[in-house]
């Protein structure tokens, strides 16, 4: 198979993921609207917003890092996509996954956040800085149970490759890690609530308390890049949990169905529970999810 074919397939996969992510965000807002008894936005609103943002004439810069912030975030999203096997068993869509890709994917997840921290910091708005501080504090609290759960899975399957983890889960639902290792699964899924950034844990971007949070100063094309990388990030995070716990996907419809269900698990939790303050959410992650993560490691090691 030529590298060009593979590159083309990867690009196509990225476009599918990008559009699916934007559609998911539209469905998310539609569901929240219906919960509130409203009609809600049209489903194509995110694409119009993106076009509008690109069409804005004024573009201000606060310096080099301000430019690089959205690009870092986009790189984080792209990196997560590139090294994640989107479809299992397909040479075209396995992307560039390799032995040890979990570590890289976890790093890319944090990478976008760090880029935003630098860019928003240069933007100079105090609310950006508050948002970033909150975001990094909460991210540290999320990473701990998430990483512990993933390490437990890695010990269970004796590999750091996502492809091999998916391969081990094939052959029926009973082989999925969520059933073979429910403790690690619970730790990862609870951490997933935070990683998705929906309601109980969305103080980072709280529009009513700190206007918009980190992207306060971002506008026009910068915001467009942030929006599209956010869409990709949401799908890829759902895909990560799908690959780790729910046996991966072998076709695009299966991919779309599973990522939809995982994403909307966090959306529905968010629609029901009110927002945590940052110290509450950090403490929440350090209680049950962290205990489950440690327990998963202990159970699998002994």
């Amino acid at each position: 198979m030529s590298i060009y074919l593979k590159l083309g397939a990867t690009l196509l996969g990225f476009l599918i993921v990008l559009n699916w992510g934007m559609l998911m965000s539209a469905i998310f807002r539609k569901i929240v609207a219906r919960l509130a008894g409203r009609h809600g936005i049209p489903f194509y609103q995110p694409w119009i917003d993106l076009l509008k943002n690109i069409g804005i004439r004024t573009t201000l810069s606060h310096g080099v890092m301000f430019y690089l912030g959205p690009i870092f975030r986009f790189t984080g999203a792209l990196g997560m996509f590139l090294f994640m096997p989107a479809l299992f068993g397909s040479d075209l869509w396995a992307n560039f996954s390799f032995q040890g890709d979990i570590v890289l994917i976890l790093y890319f997840q944090l990478f976008g956040m760090l880029g935003m921290a630098l860019g928003a910091g240069e933007g100079g708005h105090p609310h950006s800085t508050i948002g970033i501080t909150r975001g990094l504090a909460q991210h540290a609290a999320i990473e701990l149970p998430l990483t512990l759960g993933i390490i437990a899975l890695a010990i269970q399957y004796q590999t750091l490759s996502l492809n091999e983890i998916i391969a081990a889960q094939q052959g029926g639902m009973a082989n999925w890690s969520i059933f073979t290792n429910p403790v690690a699964g619970a730790a990862i899924l609870l951490a997933a609530l935070g990683a998705m950034g929906h309601s109980p844990f969305n103080l980072v971007k709280a529009p009513n308390e700190i206007p918009i949070g980190p992207p306060t100063e971002y506008h026009s094309t910068y915001l467009g890049v942030l929006m599209s990388s956010g869409a990709v990030l949401h799908v890829m995070e759902a895909a990560l949990f799908m690959n780790l716990l729910f046996g991966g996907a072998t076709s695009w419809p299966e991919f779309i169905l599973k990522t939809f269900l995982i994403y909307f698990y966090s959306v529905f939790v968010g629609a029901v529970f009110p927002r945590f303050r940052i110290e509450q959410s950090v403490v929440w992650f350090f209680k049950i999810p962290l205990a489950l993560g440690i327990l998963a490691i202990l159970l699998i090691s002994f």
């Binding site: 009609h39 049209p42 529009p207 206007p211 306060t216």
Partner: peptide, 13 residues
């Protein structure tokens, strides 16, 4: 929201 009208918290957006 039906008409594409949304509130933003910052003048930049």
């Amino acid at each position: 929201y039906r008409f594409g009208v949304q509130m933003r918290a910052t003048p930049r957006q």
